[in-house]
Nucleic acid binder design. Structure first.
Length: 317
DNA sequence: CGTTTTTGACCTGCGC
DNA sequence: GCGCAGGTCAAAAACG
């Protein structure tokens, strides 16, 4: 099914710059403020100023806490609605017999102007009555991955620990950037295919769509004895956490667990919507959705920076 | 020389 | 049935 809240790139930019809240910095700041106000401020006055500042910050924190609580409430309400929808969806969804139709709904099609990262649309597109391809891949797992890259880097390489052989490239209608088609070349019989295309909105984002399941181990995992004994569906997708020169950028890839050298991401449970795993998965989705809200991001950044300042060692407010 | 990439042609499915 | 668009094939080119 198509879950609307996962239909956009889930990229949370935490490019906020907050001062390292060291005691020295704050004191320096306060001192400079005092200088600005005037050199004649006595120690008593300074104390009063500090107290006023403290009250102001406390009020601000209260306000932010209130905002966060409201957001949490909204979030849980939304979550409940989502779970209800998920429960209802299998009954209401019309039979999608055509493969193309299926892919139009969960593919990287940028026609809706959203950013294509409907990450991990676990569409078990297993309609047995569709075309030949469905016969070859009776239970095609489709997942997506967004990777932030250098926009000037024209290569369509998504490093996911597997070896891929490019077999085609096509310019699609809705995206001026060409789409590249890859097959897994590590194992000759591996049916997994990968499509890579730059996001029409943000060309620094590569959108990789994985189809099928690897029937072999990840090359990068072959020398990892403790890795899972089997390759899950599309186990190749990495969680990309990139760092740009401007600051940290976290690209949340809501995809299946990758088994490569990078860190492991939680695999969303497939059907059991009541399971804790699925709930946690939903929570992550919702959080990602919230993170797209600039107001939320700003409030979150303020709250976090406030907490960091408060909790910095050696400080007492 | 073997492998990979490129790219135009062809195939297939869908909408009208 | 026709046109369009996405997906795949395969020959040629590039590369190591």
């Amino acid at each position: 099914m198509d879950l609307p809240w996962v239909s956009a790139p889930i990229c949370l930019d935490l490019n906020m710059e907050f001062l390292p809240a060291s005691k020295d910095n704050v004191e320096e700041s306060l001192q400079s403020n005092s200088v600005d106000i005037g050199m004649k401020i006595s120690a008593k006055d300074e104390k009063a100023v500090l107290k006023a500042e403290l009250n102001r910050v406390a009020r601000e924190n209260q306000k932010l806490n209130k905002m966060l609580n409201e957001m949490k409430e909204n979030f849980y309400n939304l979550q409940n609605q989502v779970i209800d929808l998920v429960n209802q969806a299998p009954d209401k969804e019309p039979a999608q017999s055509r493969k193309r139709k299926e892919e139009d709904r969960d593919d990287t099609k940028p026609s809706n102007g959203k950013g294509d990262c409907s990450n991990h649309v676990e569409s078990s597109s297993s309609e047995e009555d569709s075309g030949k391809k469905q016969c070859k891949l009776p239970k095609t797992k489709i997942s997506k991955l967004c990777v932030r890259t250098d926009p000037s880097d024209s290569s369509m390489v998504v490093k996911d620990g597997y070896q891929w052989r490019k077999y085609g490239q096509k310019v699609t209608r809705d995206n001026p950037c060409p789409r590249a088609y890859f097959k897994c070349s590590f194992a000759p019989a591996c049916p997994v295919k990968k499509k890579v295309q730059r996001s029409a909105e943000d060309r620094s984002i590569l959108v990789a769509t994985y189809e099928g399941e690897h029937n072999h181990q990840s090359p990068s995992q072959a020398d990892v004895p403790n890795g899972p004994s089997h390759c899950g569906p599309i186990a190749s997708a990495p969680c990309s956490v990139s760092t740009r020169s401007m600051g940290p950028t976290i690209t949340l890839d809501m995809i299946q667990p990758m088994l490569g050298p990078t860190k492991e991401v939680e695999k969303p449970p497939q059907r059991d919507v009541q399971s804790p795993e699925f709930r946690r998965f939903l929570v992550e989705k919702m959080a990602a959705s919230l993170s797209k809200d600039p107001a939320f991001t700003e409030a979150l950044a303020t709250a976090i920076s406030g907490n960091i300042i408060r909790s910095s060692p050696g400080r007492r407010w």
